[in-house]
Design a protein around this nucleic acid. Structure first.
Lengths: 197, 197
DNA sequence: CCTCAATGTTGTCTGCGCTTACATTGCCTC
DNA sequence: GAGGCAATGTAAGCGCAGACAACATTGAGG
């Protein structure tokens, strides 16, 4: 018969994993250090040994999200040869990811973690990496455009994609559905607007 | 010497006004019924006489926001004659509004109030009205397009606009600023992407 | 073996949403 | 006017959460 050891063993990573699962499903608001501790069979003060506060934990979850997110469409650079098709696939990947993990998506793209002064240090490298990757993909899809135009296009492209997910998540498109447009139609319209101009 | 009357007089509207001010400046998360009650000099239970819960109050604040928002660019339909220019002005109005009242903007376009089942009844008419107005503006700016195309374009247009505000608010464009693009350049790029295709 | 740093526990404070039981007020009717 | 009643406000309390401080336990290195 196993008796529970005084020390958890790897509480830090266990907290990150558990928080991540909750964020993916129910959003960052649903994460509570207390209930996390309870789930992991540990006292409510224990998490503070590993994270000074709740936001620091969430920042690490978001950082891991950016890593995973960027790594996934990094692959398109190697496997998909046509630059325009690559851009369309990247957009579709964003849409799928946002639909599959809405809470994590919100934490990454809507929370004000990166707007803090200063932003959490763990968050900056993966966020920058993801941003640079995206600019590369846009640049190769529109090779004739100036660098400023490419940057501007990257901004509008990601704005369209993220905004669409935000608004759909907020239920603002329910009214549009009565207009005979299917989900697939709308997805296609977004992808066309981003990649097809 | 005035003694405080037992009844506030118009607590309901006082709550709405106070909540609105806090939402505009600091976001809906900063609204607490307790501190609202304290500010207005009533007991902490008093607000519950007027709103069954916090979300109901926030829904009314959002509804008022949609009214004001739509009324403002309703004016463009009457005063601005060129349909494309009208569309550009509407976009600029969205951008200004989001920059001026970020918290209210988030409550209106990012919160999940409208995604509930059922959504708060007070919210549906103003949200629908705002949506129809927007479709009208897009339809007149692109009169040759099919109705489905107009709907799709409305969706991508508002997605671009709201997404841009969301991402800028989330600090995700800080990295882009180092690329030599000014705020005005980026605003212009968004407006061009929405209205100028 | 002993010490110490890392890690986990317990108790406490504050603030919040929400509910229940009770108090005050003003209006409406007779 | 007096009585009654609905609207409105107060007071107290529950459960949950974040954060901190004081204390306990453990294991690794000197």
């Amino acid at each position: 018969m196993e008796k529970a050891p005084y020390h958890h063993g790897d509480l830090r990573n266990a907290l990150l994993d558990a928080a991540r699962r909750i964020v993916e499903r129910d959003g960052a608001e649903a994460v509570s250090l207390r209930s996390l501790a309870e789930d992991l069979g540990v006292s409510r003060g224990a998490p503070y040994r590993h994270f000074p506060d709740r936001d620091t934990l969430l920042a690490e979850v978001a950082a891991a999200g950016f890593e995973e997110h960027a790594a996934a469409y990094q692959g398109f650079l190697d496997t998909v040869m046509d630059p325009r098709e690559r851009m369309a696939l990247t957009t579709r990947f964003y849409l799928d990811y946002g639909a599959r993990k809405p809470g994590l998506h919100r934490l990454m793209f809507e929370s004000d973690l990166l707007a803090r002064n200063p932003p959490p240090a763990v968050l900056i490298p993966p966020a920058d990496r993801s941003y640079r990757l995206l600019v590369d993909i846009v640049r190769q899809a529109f090779p004739d455009e100036s660098e400023d135009a490419v940057l501007a296009r990257t901004i509008t492209a990601i704005s369209t994609t993220i905004g669409f997910l935000t608004l759909r998540g907020a239920g603002r498109f329910k009214a549009f559905m009565r207009g005979g447009l299917s989900d697939a139609d709308i997805d296609a319209a977004v992808i066309a607007a981003v990649a097809g101009r």
